[in-house]
């Protein structure tokens, strides 16, 4: 399949989504505010919690950076991936996947990634603002390789979490009406905005492996503040997550027989 064609279609889809939002501006503004509001509601509990842990300034610093990073990665996921995954169960039941299968582009791309919500990028802006303010307030002095490590892990972590979410959403091939699994994936993602040290040890491992919510939030910040040599595992995580999702998708697609009516 021609990657250039896929990219051009994707760009067109983004332009279409932006044009749509520009057309319905007042609604777009409201959704933008709502998406930022959702983010704030998500991060306030973290700030309230860390407010009671002021005995250790490192916790407050890590928390602020984590919620900032989490906001950016969440904004990107929600802009480009989440809606498609949330609609997947419905698309499968209504037979809409037929329309994706007959297109000369990869089915998974057309079925999932064509649903774009530019207003969700408001979270990214908020996240960047939080990161800038946190950097100033805590007067951070970080090495370029630590920043690189954080960026790589944030990217890999976001892809890995999208892949994990997709694995859950694709269960719709096997199980009827599994739509709320998306709420589960979104709720679990929220654990990535808390410093990992607050979780019991078993959960700390789960959060960076089997259900990698921390990889798109707290873990990249850990790598920024205390860099380790784990960067070499990033490509492995990326390949493993994507391979598993590709495997689930292929197995699922074999079972797909369109909507009954």
């Amino acid at each position: 399949m021609n990657g250039r064609v896929v990219f051009l279609v994707w760009v067109k889809l983004i332009r279409q989504a932006v044009a749509h939002d520009l057309q319905f501006r007042s609604q777009a503004w409201l959704h933008l505010l709502a998406s930022v509001g959702e983010l704030v509601v998500g991060i306030l509990p973290v700030l309230v919690l860390t407010g009671y842990a002021d005995y250790d300034p490192a916790i407050a610093q890590a928390s602020a950076l984590t919620v900032g990073t989490f906001a950016v990665t969440t904004g990107l996921m929600d802009c480009f991936v989440s809606l498609g995954l949330r609609r997947f169960d419905l698309a499968l039941r209504r037979g809409e996947l037929d329309l994706a299968i007959i297109r000369p582009v990869p089915t998974v791309f057309y079925a999932v990634l064509r649903w774009i919500e530019p207003t969700e990028l408001g979270k990214c802006l908020t996240g960047i603002a939080i990161l800038v303010v946190a950097t100033r307030v805590y007067d951070l002095d970080v090495q370029p390789q630590a920043v690189a490590s954080m960026l790589v892990w944030a990217f890999v972590g976001s892809v890995a979490y999208c892949a994990f979410w997709a694995d859950l959403a694709f269960l719709a091939f096997w199980v009827q009406s599994i739509q709320p699994i998306n709420d589960l994936a979104a709720a679990w993602r929220g654990s990535g905005q808390y410093p990992r040290r607050f979780f019991p040890r078993a959960f700390q491992v789960i959060l960076v492996s089997f259900a990698p919510a921390a990889l798109s939030g707290s873990y990249p910040v850990e790598q920024l503040l205390e860099p380790t040599a784990t960067l070499v595992f990033a490509p492995i995580v990326l390949i493993a997550a994507c391979s598993l999702t590709a495997f689930v998708w292929r197995r699922g697609l074999v079972r797909y027989d369109g909507a009954s009516t």
């Binding site: 009671y52 916790i59 199980v175 599994i178 709420d183 589960l184 929220g190 808390y194 607050f198």
Partner: peptide
């Protein structure tokens, strides 16, 4: 499957809160 999936998501947020609050209290 609709109900178990939905209720699992309902339990997840308080579970996370429960773990981190207890963790935070344990950390002082």
């Amino acid at each position: 499957w609709w109900l178990p999936a939905m209720q699992a998501s309902v339990v997840t947020v308080p579970l996370i809160s429960l773990l981190v609050w207890r963790g935070a209290v344990a950390h002082g």
